[in-house]
Amino acid sequence: MAQPSAALKKSFPRRLARNYRQNPYIYWMALPVVLYYLLFHYLPMFGIVIAFQNFRPARGVFGSQWVGMQNFQDFFRSPFAPRLIRNTILINVYSILWGFPAPILLALMLNEVRASAYKRVIQTVSYMPHFISLVVICGMIKEFSLINGLFNDVRAFFGLERVGILSEAKMFRTVYIASGIWQQIGWGSIIYLATLAGADPNLYEAAVIDGANRFQRIIHVTLPVLVPLIVMQFILRMGQMMNVGSEKIILLYTPLTYETGDVISSYVYRRGLQETKYSLGTAIGLFNSLINMCLVVGTNALSRKVLDESLW
């Protein structure tokens, strides 16, 4: 630009018009994308107003009756609210407890393997479950959970009685989380392995010269390389504390396991969509996503403070 100061002084619409004249194609390229976001992301955001209505599709958003906070009150007074919130949080707590360290451990173990062919085979095999579709994974879980299925064969081998595993409320979370680890452990380790691959080899040589044994090297040299990444991943994960995806839950749960398996998102689907309680479902969803947003903003602020790194 010849005169930046002059350009700055111009009003925004005039600058915009000039920018358009200079780069018309960019605007035409952005247009369909912006339209898509308007129609399929921002219009539904506007649709949230039905959370404060007794929405009837026939009357539309503008004709339906306004009820204020009634839907929220209905939800919080129902016996389901505590159960749904508890289940959502507990599934996350246990997922973090068992599922978060698993890929880190695998990456540390793989990192110690010097035979690269063996390493590659293990990696390839452990990534594989990630590529099987969720429906098929849950189909396999269901198959193995039958009275004569593989899981019960294992139980019988250890002297436990055969049970309908997927109809036992007390086993639901275990099945959900263990199968999740099975599917994602290999895939989740990639990011840690890649970070280790970039580690400074001089560190190891120094540790060897100092006479550190293999365990000591892992604890004092390898693990510290991963710490910033682990903290970052952990903080991101904490932001998802009130968020459990509905898809796997819906595939696995039955009315017998609602007690431990029903979470907010699956309830929104069942009550809101299947039973067409649109307003109630939207209200519950709004409550959930507001909490999620606070958690993400909060953990992001934490991350900025602790690590000097943040999402935005």
Binding site: P44, G47, I50, V268
Partner: peptide, 12 residues
Amino acid sequence: YFGGGLIASFLV
């Protein structure tokens, strides 16, 4: 980070 949710999207 924020959306209309399942039901509002379905209705749209």
